[in-house]
Design a binder for these strands. Structure first.
Lengths: 108, 108
DNA sequence: TGTTGATTTGGCTAAAATACCAAATGTCAT
DNA sequence: ATGACATTTGGTATTTTAGCCAAATCAACA
């Protein structure tokens, strides 16, 4: 794998990594459903320390998945791309496929 | 977030995590293009130690993304779900979106 | 101007992920 | 059986990630 290809896969991995955490997946899902949320709302929903949630959001932002807008003292986050739905659909397919195998395994 | 919801996002995250690495993304991409590959071929292409590649594959397998078939001394891996293409499409969208912002930024 | 509320950042510790080498395992042909 | 491959697994060192508290910023408002 030459260094250019390498770099391309690293760039892709950065985006995937940004979603590779339950709290961040939840956030993305929530923004998908609700358009936008401020840090305090997400903190409430996620249930971790606000500083932790803020860091999750910074990570999502640096991957280009979300953008933020400051309004007064609050910062609102929203998705930057709509295709994220595809991600979730695929994850669900995999989970369904895994569940099916599991059932077949138990049926013996 | 109640524990059931929590568990669901953790299960999803496991799948995303499995792809959150340049080598594993490469492998998935390669299997998408080529149907199946043995460990030695993938090792050659990825360029890491075979033991490392084997562990990457084990991780993908435990997430349910790939399945393996032993034929003789060799083990062939292939994708278990086809929807992974959606993943890549979405990643490309994000990357294109990022590139666009970058261009706009430089144009000032 | 001082206080309160929202958010980010510094500092730190604990946990998880990576990658290598060496050793073990399993397969095939000699 | 023995040797040569292909693959996985044990062990370990290094790096990265996660999460919390406390401190720093910044906006709004009394």
């Amino acid at each position: 794998m030459d260094s250019k290809t390498q770099a391309r896969y690293e760039a892709r991995a950065k985006i995937v990594k940004a979603m590779a955490h339950p709290a961040r997946l939840f956030i993305v899902d929530e923004l998908m459903k609700n358009g936008e949320r401020c840090v305090c709302e997400l903190t409430e929903m996620v249930g971790s320390d606000m500083s932790t949630v803020s860091r999750h959001l910074a990570l999502l932002r640096s991957a280009g998945l979300v953008e933020d807008e400051k309004r007064g003292a609050m910062v609102f986050y929203r998705l930057r791309v709509k295709c994220v739905l595809n991600f979730f659909d695929c994850i669900e397919s995999v989970m369904e496929c895994n569940a099916k195998s599991q059932r077949e395994l138990l049926a013996r």
